[in-house]
Structures are given as C-alpha cells and as structure tokens.
Design a protein around this nucleic acid. Structure first.
Lengths: 288, 288
DNA sequence: CCATAAATGGAATAAAAATTCTAAAGATAC
DNA sequence: GTATCTTTAGAATTTTTATTCCATTTATGG
C-alpha cells in the first residue's frame, strides 16, 4: 500500500475514501459533484454514462472519447483515492461481472419491495414490454425495399413537411429535431393557431410530405395528406394498417403496429422507424 | 495482415473460420472437441466455463488459472482462426457488453438479403436495438420506491406543468396528451414565442413540475426547474445522470440512460417511464 | 523401434498500455 | 494587478502484456 509516503496534501485529500464497489463510487462522485475541477467532473459524468466503456476500454481510448488527456484519467482515479486508473477500472469490471446472473435477482427484489411500489414497478414493466414487443413486430412488418423507396423519396425533396397530430405529434416533433441536426431542411406542421393548411401551403412538387397517423386517425392529417397528393407532392406515410386513410394519398407507406398497455399505445417502433428514415435520408443526400 | 505468409499448414487449417460472435465460437469449439490436442482442449473447456475471466483477464493470469503456458493461449486463438489472443478476447468482451445475443445474428441475416435495401434495413435494426437495449437498462436503473414517490408527488398536484425542450420535447408533448386523456390537469410548457417563463408563472406550491432533460442539457429546462424549486413547487425530474443540472432542483428524480445509435439517442425508455408515471398518477388520484 | 510431424514449455522480444513529470494555463486570494 | 496555488496538456518513461521463437517433449505412421 501507499499510506504515508506522500505529504503532498491537496490532491490526495481523498486518501482513505476509495470505495470498493460501484455503488459506493457512484455515491462518492455524487457527493463531490460540486467541488470537482472541470476535467474531472467531465470524466465523472462520462464514467456514469458509459460504464461499460470504462470497464473495457484503454486509457487512451477512453480519454479520446471523453475528450480529455490520458493523464487526466490517472489523476481522476488518484483523486478518488485509487492507486491509478487500473485500480479504478477494476471497480467497473467487477460490476459488469456481477450484473450477469441477476435476471432472477431483479424479480426477487421486486417482489420483496412491498405494497404499492410493486404496482408502480409493474406498470413500468408493462410499458417496457409493450415497447419491446412493438419493436420486435416491426422488424417483421417493415419491408426493406419499401423503406429504401421511402428514403429515396425523401432524399429527393428540397424541403420535407412533417405532418403528425395529436398522439403521434411527438414523432413528427422529433423528426424536426433530427432533420435539423442532420442538415436536412424540414418544416414541422404544428398546427399552431390552427394554421396547419397555411403551413403546408408553400410545399411544391419538388418537396415531400412525411405523414404519420394511427387509429383513431386525426382528420387533419388525412386531409392535409390528401391535399398534398392532389398537388402532386410526394407523400411518405407511416401508419398502422392498410385501411388507414393515409394509404390512398401516399406514394410509399410503411406499416407499424404498436402494442398497447393500459389503453396507451407504445410509440417506440415508430420512433425507431422515423429515425431510420431521417438518418437514411441524410446519408443518401450526402452520397449525391 | 498475414494472409499467405505461412504455408506451415496443419496448425492453420482453421484459417477463414474465426467466428465473430460468441455463439459461433461456442459451436466451433464444440465441433472440434474431439480433434483438439490436449492443452487446447483444456483451454476450450476453461473458456466455456469461465467466459468472464477470459473477457477481463490477461494472458498471464488466464494461463495460470487454466494451467497452461501463456503462449498456449495465443496458439489456441490462432488455431481457431483469430489474429491472436486479443482478437479472441474481443469476442468474449462483446458478449458481456451487449446482452443482446441476437443483434449480430439479425445483422448477419440482413446482410444476406441484397442491395442497398440492406443498408436501410440495418439502420432500422440499429435504432430498434438501441431502443430495446435502453428499455432493458431502464429496468435496472429505475428503483420502484423512487417511482412510487414520483407518482405520489404528481398525484398530489392540482396541475402538472410539463417541462421539456429540444430533444426531449416529444416526451413532454406525449405526456400532455396522456394526462389529458386520463383527466389529469396538465400544462405543456412549449416555449411558443419564448413564453416559457410566463407559461410557468401560474404554478403554485399546490402544483408540480415534471421536468425532463438529457445531455446536452437545454439551459431553459434547468433554469425553469430551478425557478420552480425556489418557489417551493415540487419538482419531479427524468434525466440521464446524477450530474444533470436537474438533480439539484428535483424532489424526486428518475434516471434513464438511453442507448444511442448513429449519434441519435433512443427515447423509448423515457417514453415508457413517462407513461408509467402518467397512468400511475391517474390511478392514485382515482383511489382518493 | 525408428523417423517424422505435431504439440508444448519457457525464455526472449515486441507491442501496447499505464503512469509520471514538467511546463504552461487558469484560478484564487491578497 | 500581482503572487501563489491548482489544474491541465502533452511528451517521456516505466511497467505491463501479448506475441514470437526455438529447444524439448510427445504423439503418429511405417
């Protein structure tokens, strides 16, 4: 050990703390949150967000991802009371080792916690399973060729108009965010002040509409999609059945059947699909 | 690379096989069981019995535990078609990292279908996997007691103010929809015309704020949550790390670490959590 | 039982990784 | 505004770790 060999002080104020399990480490980082210098705090946040990376990575690799110098990792570990980075890394590895067989553990803990906590947890579990189920189903229902066609259509457009109201509005809103980040011009029809039709009025044949609607189909979405089709604006639709009113207006349509729990339908699969469309479109444009 | 430089034969009979996932490796070892030399067979058995040790250990350490020489480990890896031990070790690490045994498998199947459709499909697969992974992780990170406390806090509120900007706005927007359907009074702070602060101005101690924010934290959300906390309005937060600026303002906070793919983070777990909160809150109110 | 090939152990070497050190930048107190 | 202490970046160094090589042993076929 290295107990008294340094009287250097300050930096080693931490000596003696050095938690030997992940939870302890987490708590320590939390308590120091406000007193840590910039780079160390940055590293603390990174470690909590990417624990597996810390467990498996090398000093150089982690440093690069976290945006710091390799030596900072060592200082970080020492400031927490460890011998060096390797020692700190051990904590992260141990956690990963243990985490494996704990499937049944999770259920056991759930059962032991009592009363209404259980109910809350099972609600969460219900929504999580519905989401997982939807994702699974989508892998079967979406055909790669259709997806490709949808991407091509959107990639050709100058501006993409995003159409989605009520329940699916979050998906359109996220598309607006993603397209923006990707440098693709997109306009979110948000119906503020009921100006939906006017927001769409500037669209031309060189643009495209990405329309999203699930049962019970919001009439505005179907109406605006129909208007767009009439004006020869290409329409890509995401919907939940062949009977959707969107289908008649759409040039390409993708089917997603979301599972529901407690009367609320998941949106996970739709989000994944929307993201794939967005990134695919941006990539296609970059190609030429 | 080192493709043709050895005509040594026998030992390298394996070249070209080298499975790139754990299951494939397992199958390969099984099929070779009877033709392997003593020490290599011994190692194969050891590896199947202590996969985490192979994932984390060093050549010297594993060799000692398995009762062979370090060089034997390298020979072992090469006889299976890998570049060296490090390459083989990667397979074991990947397995621990993604508890997602069928992810690679799905991609493999995908690659067998052809053309550029494949790329579109693998994008979709990537986002779907990220979503599924996030859901899985959330089951570990959200503690039932915290969830219950969050629900109680929200259930006591007269009006729930929904705070979420930029990337997570879709979640807040969906909460607005869900709370509305459930008959719970909720106000979505949508920052139209930058009126966020004014939209929140009517909140009192008898209300509550549901604030959502992930890295990179939108300053408005943190600011408004801080304002709310100062005015003694209960704050429930959904965020992605203990280092989030929301944590200091929150009475209860729930942690969700979403996985990302292609620079875009999933929102699935957050949605599931938000839904559980909404339905839980409505039920609690119905009780009394 | 000998000849030949395969397999093994162990030391030597090469590669990679962690750690240390120093000069410079940045805070903080005066 | 200056002096002092803390923090940081980056290169140099040391340590650890993987790999290669070769002499020796063990198996295999005639």
């Amino acid at each position: 050990m290295k107990p008294e060999d340094d009287m250097s002080g300050a930096l080693d104020a931490a000596i003696g703390t050095a938690p030997d399990d992940y939870e302890g480490l987490r708590a320590l980082l939390l308590s120091r949150r406000d007193t840590m210098p910039k780079r160390l705090k940055q590293l603390a946040a990174f470690a909590m967000e990417h624990p597996e990376e810390v467990a498996f990575g090398t000093v150089a690799g982690i440093a690069e991802h976290a945006g710091v110098q390799p030596s900072t990792l060592v200082r970080f570990a020492k400031s927490l009371g460890y011998d060096g980075f390797s020692h700190l890394q051990q904590i992260f590895r141990d956690r990963l080792r243990e985490r494996f067989p704990d499937y049944r553990e999770r259920l056991r803990v759930l059962r032991e916690s009592e009363g209404h906590h259980v109910h809350a947890a099972s609600l969460l579990e219900g929504f999580a399973s519905a989401a997982a189920l939807s994702l699974d189903r989508m892998r079967d229902s979406v055909r790669p060729e259709e997806l490709s066609r949808a991407i091509e259509t959107l990639a050709k457009a100058e501006t993409i108009y995003l159409l989605g109201a009520r329940r699916v509005f979050p998906i359109s809103a996220y598309c607006a965010y993603a397209f923006g980040k990707l440098g693709v011009r997109a306009i979110l029809i948000d119906h503020v002040a009921q100006l939906g039709p006017e927001q769409l009025a500037t669209a031309t044949e060189r643009d495209a509409v990405l329309a999203i609607s699930f049962t019970p189909y919001a009439p505005v979405t179907a109406d605006l999609a129909a208007v767009a089709a009439q004006r020869n604006i290409p329409v890509v639709a995401i919907t939940d059945s062949a009977f959707s009113p969107l289908v008649t207006s759409a040039d390409v349509w993708l089917e997603v059947a979301e599972a529901d729990f407690s009367a609320f339908r998941s949106l996970s699969a739709s989000f994944a699909l929307a993201m794939a469309l967005a990134v695919g479109t941006a990539e296609k444009r970059a190609e030429g």
